[in-house]
C-alpha cells in the first residue's frame, strides 16, 4: 500500500538511517568510556534499529532476511495484520486446536470442494455450544481442507471487546467485530469471512432446542453479500450443539459478572473449572454449495423484502443440511 512512491520513501529512509547511525555511534562512544555495560546495551538497540531501517533498500532487504534467518523472525512474530490478527498467537494456539480437531472432536468434513479456493466468500453456519468452540474448529476445517491452508476470519459480537483478555485474544486469533464496515473491508481485502447469524442467541441455546436454528439476525449478512456480490457458503456444524448441554442460563448473574449470561450446564459450575471442559462429541462439518449473489446489487440490499427472502432461504438451506445429517447420525459420541 505504501509503495506508491518508493523512491521518495527510499530517500527518506536512507537519510534517516545515516543520521541515526551517526548519532548512535557518537552516543555510544561517549558512553563506552564511562559505562561499558550500558554501551553494550546501546549497541544492541542501535543494531536492532538499524536493522529496521535497513529493510527499505535492496541490500538492506538481503541483510534483513539473513538477520531474520539467524536471529529468528521477530517482526513477523509480534506484528499484527490490518485487522489485529497476530501470526504468533495463531501459531501458539494451533497445536491445541489441532488436537481438539483431530483427536478430541474427531472432525469429519463433507463438501471440502465447496471451500472457496481464493477470493472473498462468506461462510454462514449454525452457532451453538455455550462456549463458541464451533468458530475455532470450523475455521480449522477450512484451514486443513484448503490446499494452501486458507485462514478465514470470523465476525464476533461487540460484548467480547469489553471483557479483559477475551477481546484481545479473539482479535489476535483473527476475530473481527461484527459490523458492516468491517465486513465490507474484510471482503474487499479478499478474505474469507465466517458469520454465525444466530449470534449470541445461538451460543446460548438451551439443550432441548439444539439444532433448531434461531432467527438469522436482521439479515445483515445478506445485505453484505448483496452489496459485495460475494458468494455465500451455507455450512452445517453437527456435534457442537452437545458439547455443553445447557440446562438453564441466568442473565442477571451474567450481567453482574460482565458477561451476557451465566450458563448452568450439565458440568458447569458444579465441577468448577473442570466443568469448562467440553464433552467429547463426534463432529461433522458440511460445507454446502456456494449460493451466488452476483445477480444482486447494492440497491437490493435496501429492499427489506428481498433481504428477508434470501435470509429465510439460506436459513432453510442450513436447517435442511442439519436435519439430513442428524437423520444419518447414529450416535453423538462416535
Amino acid at each position: 500500500m505504501s509503495n506508491d512512491i518508493p523512491f521518495l520513501r527510499l530517500l527518506s529512509a536512507i537519510g534517516e538511517l545515516k543520521e541515526h547511525a551517526k548519532g548512535a555511534k557518537r552516543e555510544i562512544l561517549e558512553f563506552a568510556d564511562r559505562d561499558p555495560a550500558k554501551a553494550r546495551v546501546l549497541f544492541k538497540v542501535a543494531d536492532t534499529l538499524l536493522k529496521q531501517f535497513a529493510k527499505t533498500s535492496v541490500y538492506g532487504k538481503l541483510k534483513y532476511a539473513l538477520d531474520m534467518w539467524s536471529y529468528g523472525d521477530e517482526e513477523r512474530y509480534y506484528d499484527v495484520d490490518a485487522f489485529g490478527m497476530s501470526n504468533a498467537t495463531v501459531e501458539l494456539m494451533m497445536p491445541f486446536f489441532q488436537f481438539l480437531y483431530h483427536h478430541y472432536f474427531r472432525v469429519d468434513v463433507e463438501g471440502a470442494k465447496n471451500i472457496a479456493r481464493n477470493g472473498p466468500a462468506l461462510v454462514i453456519a449454525n452457532h451453538s455450544g455455550t462456549l463458541p468452540y464451533d468458530g475455532a474448529i470450523t475455521n480449522l476445517a477450512v484451514y486443513n481442507n484448503h490446499p494452501k491452508h486458507r485462514y478465514a476470519r470470523y465476525l464476533v459480537d461487540d460484548f467480547v471487546y469489553y471483557v479483559p483478555f477475551a477481546g484481545t485474544f479473539i482479535q489476535r486469533t483473527g476475530g473481527v467485530r461484527a459490523c458492516q464496515e468491517n465486513a465490507v473491508r474484510l471482503l474487499d481485502h479478499g478474505h474469507m469471512v465466517m458469520v454465525f447469524p444466530e449470534g449470541l442467541k445461538g451460543v446460548s441455546k438451551p439443550f432441548e432446542e439444539r439444532y433448531q436454528l434461531q432467527r438469522f439476525g436482521r439479515g445483515g449478512y445478506v445485505k453484505l453479500a448483496m452489496r459485495t456480490g460475494v458468494p455465500v457458503i451455507p455450512t452445517a456444524i453437527i456435534g457442537a450443539e452437545e458439547i455443553h448441554p445447557m440446562l438453564w442460563k441466568s442473565e442477571v448473574l451474567g450481567k453482574a459478572m460482565g458477561m451476557p449470561y451465566f450458563p448452568f450446564t450439565v458440568t458447569f459450575p458444579w465441577l468448577g473449572p473442570l466443568g469448562l471442559i467440553p464433552l467429547p462429541t463426534k463432529w461433522k462439518i458440511i460445507f454446502g454449495k456456494p449460493i451466488s449473489f452476483k445477480k444482486f446489487t447494492a440497491r437490493d440490499a435496501k429492499s427489506e423484502r428481498k433481504v428477508k427472502e434470501m435470509s429465510q432461504k439460506i436459513q432453510a438451506k442450513v436447517q435442511s443440511m442439519i436435519d439430513t445429517e442428524l437423520e444419518k447420525r447414529e450416535s453423538v459420541w462416535y
Partner: peptide, 21 residues
C-alpha cells in the same frame, strides 16, 4: 497525500530522537 513513514517507522524515528544532538 501519501504518508512516507509507516506507523512503525514514525515510532522508530521517535525512539531514536535522543541520539540526534
Amino acid at each position: 497525500f501519501v504518508p512516507v513513514y509507516t506507523s512503525h517507522e514514525a515510532l522508530l524515528s521517535f525512539a531514536t530522537k535522543g541520539w540526534r544532538r
